[in-house]
């Protein structure tokens, strides 16, 4: 598991919940909302899929950590690591 892998996981989830979005050129440092048509309902789905598919919990107060691919990787990577160890 590395941070690039985490980004890919998030992208795969977005592809699943928003199949009509073009994800070929998503810039990791730019806010997802600014380059894709995602609203708060879609971000809830990202959180719910992280839990369902990977057992990762994101408390509501921390949803904004997922605003870009880079910030998602920074925030989620330790959670994936902790999971791997456990």
């Amino acid at each position: 598991m590395d941070k690039e892998k985490v980004k890919q996981i998030v992208l795969d989830i977005i592809a699943e919940i928003a199949p009509d979005e073009d994800l070929t050129d998503v810039k990791p440092e730019v806010r997802l909302r600014d380059q894709l048509d995602l609203d708060s309902m879609d971000f809830l789905d990202i959180v719910m899929e992280l839990r369902k598919q990977h057992g990762i919990e994101v408390p509501e107060a921390e949803y904004r950590q997922l605003e870009s691919l880079d910030s998602s990787a920074e925030y989620l990577f330790p959670k994936f690591e902790a999971k791997a160890v456990a």
């Binding site: 919940i17 928003a18 199949p19 009509d20 048509d37 609203d39 309902m41 879609d42 789905d45």
Partner: peptide, 15 residues
Amino acid sequence: KASPLIRLCRQLRIP
């Protein structure tokens, strides 16, 4: 994409 109907389809994952 801004349409409520498209939002709904996404939420229900129905194309």
